[in-house]
Design a protein around this nucleic acid. Sequence first.
DNA 1: ATGCTATATAGCCGTTGACTTATATAAGTG
DNA 2: CACTTATATAAGTCAACGGCTATATAGCAT
Lengths: 109, 109
Amino acid sequence: MHAFDVLGDPVRRRILELLAEGEKSSGDVVAVVQREYGISQPAVSQHLKVLRDSGFATVRADAQRRLYAVDTAPLRDVDRWLDQFRAFWDHKLEAFATEIARGKKKRRD
Amino acid sequence: MHAFDVLGDPVRRRILELLAEGEKSSGDVVAVVQREYGISQPAVSQHLKVLRDSGFATVRADAQRRLYAVDTAPLRDVDRWLDQFRAFWDHKLEAFATEIARGKKKRRD
DNA sequence: ATGCTATATAGCCGTTGACTTATATAAGTG
DNA sequence: CACTTATATAAGTCAACGGCTATATAGCAT
């Protein structure tokens, strides 16, 4: 599943936002999402699986708990894809700051 | 349709890349996409409609032609959504450069 | 062992989205 | 006006996705 398809789902975006706050157990995520979206535990679990499989999240076990953390690698891919459009809103010196931010010392075209 | 859903489709992403090169007629887009993805003219036209409706593209008429151009507003929304994750890969001074690039002088939390 | 807690998987179903072909609309051309 | 070009819309099909309930798996507690 492509990164953008993963991010297409509002529940998955919300889960990533939660994980951005720090590592959270499946149960923690279920609690919040259930309150906000009213979907079942299995539904949330499936979203977590998608996030795992697509590289957006990593898991580690803690007894019966599964602790999820965000992995930004695919988000960085998205960010890099956006690069080709930044020229449209990054004019002036902002473009320079962005260059630095993205570590593109070699680009000159 | 949410911005991420729009970007979820590879054909639409490709169309945006084409428009990033400059204004193109529907026919120009159809030609490329048809060659690369082997889908019909109406299919491409429908994708262009989605891009229009979701604000990713603007059109102007030139006789029977429709000239499409990219509108980056929704892409900027996506970029801003990514902000909450940048802390994970924007460490050191790069973060500062990004701050400048995004014009966030007020943030302090 | 037995049961409770935490999480994942299986199997089913309805909706949606991305195609298709056929056709409509609109503007230039002979 | 009739024809062709350029593009959009209509209507139908099919697969994929996201939800559900039921159940399996695994670890802790009694």
